[in-house]
Amino acid sequence: MAATEAQKMELNKHFVVGVFDDEDTLADAITFVKEKGIKIHEVFTPYPIHGLEHKLGYKHSWLPTAAFLFGATGTTLALIMQIGMLGVDWPMIIGGKPFIAVPDFIPVTFEMTVLLAAFGMVGSFLVSQDMKPHKVPRIFDRRATDDKFIMAIDLAENTLGEEQLKEVLKEAGTEEGTEEHPAIFRKDFTDEENNPSFIGYVRKLFSEGVLANDTSRPVKS
């Protein structure tokens, strides 16, 4: 069942998801799957795994550059502020020092550099990763934040069909799986799930509650 034009047109998304129970198996599986010419949508892991980004072909983060630029802005602003206020706007002799006593300005300059670098970088991170309190995440498997390693393959991005992809994932070494939590499954996101509204999410949560099969922890009776 290859991805048809019709499927690409609609806004619904269809994925094949594989669940792995070990970081090394996942790392090997990425290589294996990629060798088959399959494009991986994303992998989800409970903790950062070193070296995975190389296997997936991700670039180094650009955030250090952002931090440097924000930091340099902080340095400049701090110097302008101090020189402007004490050197130009209202010069005063303090402790027998020159109006612009550069050594005295260094502590504040340093603090402002760090402040802007840190906040600028974290802000860039949150904005670029679309992280915000009212974000409704698109979750493939809730166990990805517990102890499982999840690989998602977008059907629309690959020529192989669902069954073939499932076969590849199985070969790649997914876990055993159970009836309740299969190791390989298809996951569809509707148009609304892809572009959720926070209000709608909260309304749904309060009308339907948390569904029993939607947690990674057994619900206590």
């Binding site: 989800f44 983060s61 760090v114 840190a118 979750i139």
Partner: peptide
Amino acid sequence: LSFGWIGGARSWVHYESVALILAGL
């Protein structure tokens, strides 16, 4: 509180970078 975190590898790359630079700062 979790800001919609789902643990994607791409996010982890940036996340690790942020953690390292914040440590450096």
